[in-house]
Nucleic acid binder design. Sequence first.
DNA 1: CTTGTTTACTGAACACTGTTCATTATGTTT
DNA 2: AAACATAATGAACAGTGTTCAGTAAACAAG
Lengths: 205, 205
Amino acid sequence: MGILERKEREREEMRRLILEAAQKLFLANGYEKVSIRNIADEIEYSPATIYLYFKDKNELFFALHQQAFRKLINEFAPIAHLQKPMDKLEEMGRLYIRFAFENPELFDLMFIMNAPMEAIECREDIWDDGHQAFHVLQNVVQECIDSGAIKHPDAERAGLLIWSMVHGLAALFLRKRMMIFGEERKKNLMDEAYDLFVQTIRKGL
Amino acid sequence: MGILERKEREREEMRRLILEAAQKLFLANGYEKVSIRNIADEIEYSPATIYLYFKDKNELFFALHQQAFRKLINEFAPIAHLQKPMDKLEEMGRLYIRFAFENPELFDLMFIMNAPMEAIECREDIWDDGHQAFHVLQNVVQECIDSGAIKHPDAERAGLLIWSMVHGLAALFLRKRMMIFGEERKKNLMDEAYDLFVQTIRKGL
DNA sequence: CTTGTTTACTGAACACTGTTCATTATGTTT
DNA sequence: AAACATAATGAACAGTGTTCAGTAAACAAG
């Protein structure tokens, strides 16, 4: 009965093909400017075919969103080589911000856009990637607590505080809300603000 | 020559009418689900008429964006009655988050959506409302520095740090990224994280 | 090998979208 | 009253996400 398995393989292969084309076009032209028809053209299939593999555009976004999370978690890997927990935390924040700068479209999909979350509405248990990524952070925070570098005892709470701060910095920048600081000042100001953040939590958290 | 003035008044009145209808529909149905045609129907004019008063949809968004900033700045007014600068800062953060919860669509427009910023691309000097709102924060931070409550000497840098933190918290919540914490836990966790934030900057900033 | 059946795919359509523009209707000036 | 300026519009353009009846190919059974 290898035939059903082959069908399943072909189905999986087709999903991969669609996602690859979608990713390529999105990264090249931005989400706003890519339509289902563009993606269909890229893979040389009819637009209707895409709907045989994804319920709607949001589900396609969610699939890419999952891939992007895997990429981010991979980029966090090098922190394991650092000795001091607090250094790990500091480096994680920097990696988060660097990821946002180098992959603005992916970052958008992962943390800002509504579309991917609308695909899993009312199924909060399903969002494994988010869970996983936050746990990487939470574990490092726990290490900081265990080593006495962070005094506050709740790693989840402290983790959210740290995530929010770093995310806020990246999100305000990417969504052009730092225009108020001027074109060449804003990048420096971000680095300075991040340094100040690290300094502050080392002292007070 | 009162006739030109009347024309100008009528023009201003029409802009107001459009913005009012747009605001009403957006708040009722969300930005995604309201079209220029819907707005035109609401005011009983042709869609093309709207383009006589606004260059495009982004410019309409930007006009609403300006109004929303005025509203936020107004909501900050009560902090003036507080004595201690640090209490002012704490309350401002809470007001920012409350504003985000009570006016998610406006918050979106002001700090998350791309559309309004695309209307003023390359004209960074023009975005007065953003400047003004940040200055309200920066002034309070300066008071904190002057009174010795905050040790770090740069109010702009510290202001951005604080804005980013509070904004991150609100933005992650509104864009449903706190789903990972569970439906009923997330609201509490936010409050806890904000308390921890206040505690941390009181100690370490 | 010829049936019948399941599956994969598509063309065309539906109901929208933002935006433009020639044409009409209205108000103002000479 | 005739000439002009302005405001408003209907209709169109080129696109959007999505659905669905119909077709063609792959498979299973006789």
